[in-house]
Amino acid sequence: MNWQRVWRSLRAEFGRSPMAKLGVVLILAVFLMAIFAPFLATTNPKAQDLSRANEPPVGFTDTTEDTRLVDGERQTVTVTTRGTLEYPLGTNQLGQDMYSRLLYGARTSLLVGLLGTAIAALAGVSVGIVAGYYGGRVDDGLMRFADVMLAFPALVLAIALIGLLGPRAVDIPDPFVAAGLVSDMPETTVLPLTVTLVVALVNWVWFARVARGEALSVREKNYVKASRSLGASDRRLMLKHVLPNSLTPILVLATVQVAVIILLESALSFLGFSGTTLSWGFDISQGRDLLATSWWISTMPGLAIVVTVIGINLVGDWLRDALDPDIEGESGGGMG
């Protein structure tokens, strides 16, 4: 694997493509939002203020009719609420700040997206390389198992597993709050553990297929045959020759998978199968029954998902155009 050449073609393609630049900018923005959420947030995203519930975003007004008791008589009053800068993206039915929730939601999405992809890649690549390298019965067995896994649509399998195992979550302490740099913000970030493991479990197969294909072709190369005849161990051959050669297509696949997993996480949270309430998908589900009155609750987190996934897909396109790996299945930031 010639890293210098990879780097050169990445740079050349980046210079040529305005879309690649846009993608990198979008992803950087989302990463900064997620990392520095405690500084950027204006209100604790979990703090409720029922007296300020369902306020519209700044620049919008909302009129509702309310029945009140005036001098012992019931009267219908028209109440006009104006959006304020205090809650720039409005509030939800609990009076929580949508803007701060958006920032913290980015943390959940990126955590699950990156960690889930890493676990899936590790498991899939190991299985794929072993299957492709040894071939024969090992290969048959592992690939038949992969077929069975693929016979379940990812979302359906994920719902079943999380629904049955129960959504478990791990609290990760927020370093900024722990260091005393910010106060009034949540002390921990919740990592939905079951969700992360399950999205990795339903997506490892793609990595296994790509790694297997690469291993199959590398195995037959002359230099690999030569090292084998010189007595190199299987382990060494797999780590030194097969793995480095599969890295480019796996990198491209991993980028696309981050998008797939972020979409899958949002779908699971939307359906109520998650371990955290600070998630874009969860917020969308919260606004669903209030569409007629408070459109912003569902709209804002959805836009955040679209922008994030567009950024990742653009970066994926950039990597693919620059490195040109031959991946079966092409792109697809699918719902799994």
Partner: peptide
Amino acid sequence: GISTPNFW
């Protein structure tokens, strides 16, 4: 289209 969650 490929970046939009269909439920949203």
